[in-house]
């Protein structure tokens, strides 16, 4: 062991030599945190964990050390489906220019109360 601390010992209770890591590394999970009741879960980041139980615990330890959350979601990163990056503009083009979906489009009623 490096370092001079006597607090740890040399861990020599199990001396067997180790084969190099055979398994794949722990998978990646995406973490979503609900910061308080009434709000949505918001993406906070990712982490690695061997399985779902450990993922949600690691998320608690990593992403809520300062009271940031009242609820957590963890999702295998591989399970998230995203919109097609090659779709370029067309995926999000349609809503543009449809100003009439927004209240600010309707100016003649400005000044009318409770509308």
């Amino acid at each position: 062991m490096t370092g001079g601390s006597t607090t740890g010992d040399d861990g020599s209770t199990a001396p067997a030599p180790l084969a190099p890591e055979k398994r794949q590394p722990w998978p990646l999970w995406e973490v979503f945190v609900r910061s308080s009741r009434g709000l949505s879960h918001v993406h906070a980041g990712s982490l690695h964990a061997p399985d779902a139980e450990m993922a949600v615990r690691n998320a608690r330890d990593l992403y809520t050390r300062r009271n940031e959350g009242v609820s957590l979601w963890v999702v295998p990163a591989s399970s998230i489906i995203t919109s097609d990056p090659d779709a370029k503009g067309q995926f999000f083009e349609s809503p543009q220019g449809k100003d009439y979906r927004h209240a600010t489009y309707y100016t003649k009623s400005d000044g009318v109360k409770h509308l």
Partner: peptide, 15 residues
Amino acid sequence: MSESNASATRTTPGN
């Protein structure tokens, strides 16, 4: 509390 300051990085010491 507004949505903007209630983000996932909000931090409080608790009570």
